[in-house]
Amino acid sequence: MSKVLFLDIDGVLNSNFWKDSHQTEISDGALIDEEKIKLLASLVKETNSEIILHSGWRFWFDTELKPLCTEANKLVELLEKENLYISGVTPDLTTEEIRKTKKFSLVKADEILLWINLHNSVTDWVVLDDLDLHSDQIKQHQVKTDQTIGLTLENVKQAVKILSDNK
């Protein structure tokens, strides 16, 4: 493993649910946009990178990355259509307070950096997320998607550049 793509789901592989409340829950995985999956596939194939899930969706998988609910199962099915697979998930550093307030962005950067430190074979990495992850180190590697649009071709080009530049 040398190139890693840290993948968030909401605001990256979907966008339709970002209505006024911003906290609308996804009911059945139907809001995963298959066009966004195809864009993701082009990125993964061009860079030969592995997908590490750093989304809250990672809690919908067991320790062997088997889906535990309909949403996760639908995500896996859509990824597999494009020959994509989740290789791992970031560790959980959330606290009860963070879970209550849903301020996951406060620990996402630390979770990603911890994962990288535990996997010393990583040479290049990129983060796809619609949130500000409050870290200068992460910012250099992040492609920040627009939550109202999700992943775009321009985002993919930016991610390819990040994964191709040896820093």
Results as ranks from 00 to 15, higher is better:
H134N: 13
E97Q: 11
K3G: 08
K81D: 05
S135M: 05
N120G: 12
V122S: 08
L93K: 10
I32Q: 00
N83Q: 13
I86K: 02
D165V: 09
K74L: 13
D92L: 01
L84T: 05
E25R: 15
S135L: 06
H119V: 04
E34D: 11
S49A: 15
T148R: 09
R58E: 04
S15G: 15
D129W: 02
I162C: 00
L79D: 05
R58I: 00
L114D: 04
L13E: 00
L151N: 00
T47Y: 06
D130R: 01
D130V: 03
S49Y: 04
A159W: 03
S121C: 10
E154C: 06
K45I: 08
N155A: 04
I98F: 07
K103F: 10
L118V: 04
L68W: 02
V156H: 00
K108R: 14
A30C: 08
E111W: 04
D136H: 10
K45Y: 12
V89F: 01
I26Q: 11
K45P: 06
L106R: 12
S121A: 13
K74P: 03
D8M: 04
L68C: 06
L5C: 15
T24F: 11
D10H: 06
E97F: 10
T47L: 06
Q140K: 15
S121Y: 13
K19F: 07
G150F: 00
Q147K: 14
L163T: 01
T70Q: 14
D132L: 05
L65D: 01
